[in-house]
């Protein structure tokens, strides 16, 4: 039998061409696999709907300010744009984007380990010069990087559009650090979602099942968040929102969605979102927690799930 292996030239690969970056190969493969999906871009676009709405509104008001024949309308339009707190707009954008971030995380990560369990791919991964840590780091980055991209794209787009178009309305002056806060926020959120879906993924042999359970946890915890939000909002309408007790605040933020909103509030330095349109406050008006609280909580949850994933990832099922 003769074949292309006959020259044995591949033996030279063992003499210096090889590298030890299996984790990067895994991350790249995960990233490529996710960004190739149309759904990824559709969800990314959908997650930015709030920024689009705000930009359209501001554009309309800007046109009114420039072109209206009524001075009063011009003044009200300028007042509206000037009184926008841009960090609040971003806080709203982050909040309204949570559901899409969940779907993006599920798309990128629910099957990341579960499908490998199903197809025995771990036998191949771990029989190569690739350790469990390489595997987990690679898988984590393979989910994290597309999520950061998806979270950052709308925010960065909004930031640069705002910086160029609305600097006269205080866009850059209000928070000079916003340009750094946005990537920081995106990375923290992406890291949290990534750790959750990877941890869940490692527990199952079916990506869909892992995704369904992750989504169920998200929605069930979020249900209580919304319920508490309603109770708090009702209480706040009777008295000052600052009287919300700490346990109630903690409970309000005790969901995937809630932890991320609390983190966003801490980083953006805003207690609530909303445009200066008058009317009732939205359910983001629960006072923020100190930033370290959601950060510590998300760190513990993420660490726990990653520890679980580390324990579950193995090439052979060892019965003790």
């Amino acid at each position: 039998m003769s074949g292309p292996l006959a020259d044995l030239s591949y033996r030279h690969y063992a003499d210096g061409v090889v590298n030890d970056r299996a984790w990067w190969a895994i991350a790249r493969n995960g990233f490529r696999g996710t960004v190739k999906k149309k759904g990824f871009w559709v969800l990314t676009a959908m997650s930015s709907w709030w920024y689009a709405v705000v930009l359209v509104m501001v554009y309309v008001f800007e046109q009114i300010a420039a072109n209206s024949i009524r001075q009063q309308a011009q003044d009200r339009a300028v007042d509206f744009i000037s009184s926008i707190t841009w960090n609040r707009v971003i806080l709203d954008g982050v909040s309204f984007g949570q559901i899409f971030y969940l779907f993006l995380a599920l798309m990128a990560g629910a099957g990341a380990i579960a499908n490998d369990n199903r197809t025995n791919a771990l036998l191949v991964y771990l029989s190569k010069p690739c350790t469990k840590m390489d595997y987990l780091i690679g898988k984590w980055l393979g989910v994290f990087l597309p999520l950061v991209l998806a979270m950052l794209l709308p925010q960065v787009g909004f930031f640069f559009y705002g910086a160029m178009s609305y600097h006269d309305y205080g866009f850059l002056r209000q928070d000079p650090w916003l340009v750094l806060k946005l990537p920081l926020l995106a990375m923290i959120m992406a890291a949290f979602y990534t750790s959750i879906v990877l941890g869940m993924s490692s527990l199952f042999n079916q990506g869909r099942l892992a995704g369904a359970i992750s989504a169920a946890i998200y929605f069930i915890t979020n249900f209580f968040t919304v319920l508490l939000g309603g109770i708090i909002a009702a209480g706040a309408s009777m008295e000052s929102s600052t009287t919300v007790s700490t346990p109630l605040k903690l409970a309000f933020y005790g969901s995937v969605d809630g932890i991320m909103i609390a983190t966003a509030k801490g980083i953006l330095g805003e207690d609530q979102g909303g445009l200066p349109l008058g009317g009732p406050q939205n359910n983001l008006s629960v006072p923020a927690l100190p930033l370290w609280v959601p950060l510590l909580f998300s760190l513990v949850v993420a660490g726990l799930l990653l520890f679980l994933a580390h324990a579950r990832v193995r090439a052979v099922e060892v019965v003790k």
């Binding site: 090889v18 590298n19 190969a25 493969n29 499908n115 025995n120 991964y125 190569k128 690739c130």
Partner: peptide, 24 residues
């Protein structure tokens, strides 16, 4: 046992295995 990387073609699977082993 049967084993493969989900969603990859044959050549994609083997090339990916090569990358894991350290080949450019």
């Amino acid at each position: 046992q049967d084993c493969h990387f989900p969603g990859l073609s044959g050549v994609g699977f083997v090339a990916y295995a090569g990358e894991l082993a350290g080949l450019p």
